[in-house]
Simulated assay, not measured.
Amino acid sequence: MVKRIAALLLSAAVLTAAAGCNYEELAQRSDSDYGSRQANDPKMLGGKSYGPMSTNPHQHDNSFFEYSSVISRKVTDLNGVASAIVMLTDKNAYVGLMLDWSAVGTRNSGRLREQDNTGTNEGVYNHDTGSPYGNSRALVSPYNSYFSVNDINDLSDELKQTVALKVRELAPAAQEVHISANMELVNYFNHFAKEAWGGRSLMPWIDQFNTVVKYHFAGGKEMPPPITQPGTYSPSESQMDR
């Protein structure tokens, strides 16, 4: 009996030690830690899965795009992601993210937060002006909103890799996966998604979509007008009959 108890205690000690040894690796593999950034980090093994994969100058000249509710939900389920909007094209997958800071290290650098949510404590929308009114066109805004990251280079590489692998798992034909948490990009994607939810074709918006993704992911010179301002956007007239 004594030997059996001793054996059980020894086994427990070994398991505890093993768990302690593997804790760091388990944390690095989880979607709760995007900030370890160590050599041979398990999230980054196997090659980069996001961003440019070719030098094709026409990589973002998409001929169609569609909203993927399935992949959007799967990416939204990741820790650190408040919501995701995923668009698939004939070439690529594009992901717009809103963050909730529920995971560690979602940013590489830059300002800690681009949103001011202190108005919620005062019963107002805009803390600076005291206005109680928000912008119905904006999914992400500077006030009382989930969080954005203006520069894609400020998003954790581990977060982008995790998102890209999830997208490629469900859309293996995607040549490239491009990911951003930029406020304007997410608001554009939200508008496109609303069109899809309403059962309307996205083809009238293909020119605007390509302008948006080229500007944000390929250094495009044409800057899309802010979609959150009334009267600044509409489908291309040349596309309306498609």
Rank of each mutant, 00 (worst) to 15 (best):
T211A: 06
S54D: 08
S32I: 08
A82I: 00
E222C: 09
N22M: 11
A13G: 08
N40R: 15
P225H: 14
V167D: 14
S148E: 07
S180H: 06
S234G: 12
A181S: 05
H191M: 05
N187H: 03
A82S: 01
F217E: 13
A138E: 07
E195Q: 03
D77F: 08
M1G: 11
S68E: 05
P204Q: 11
Y67C: 03
M1A: 09
M44C: 13
V86D: 12
H216D: 03
A193Q: 10
G130T: 10
N153E: 12
T55F: 04
N210M: 00
L97T: 00
T89E: 01
I5M: 10
V177E: 03
V95E: 05
D128G: 00
E158S: 12
A17F: 09
E24Y: 07
Q161I: 01
A6E: 09
L159C: 02
S236Q: 07
D90M: 07
M44W: 04
W197K: 08
N187L: 15
F192G: 04
M240N: 13
P230R: 01
K48D: 04
P52M: 14
D154T: 11
F217A: 05
T76K: 11
A12Q: 02
D154G: 07
N117Q: 07
M87L: 09
T232F: 14
G47W: 15
P57M: 08
A196Q: 08
L15E: 15
S238N: 12
D241K: 03
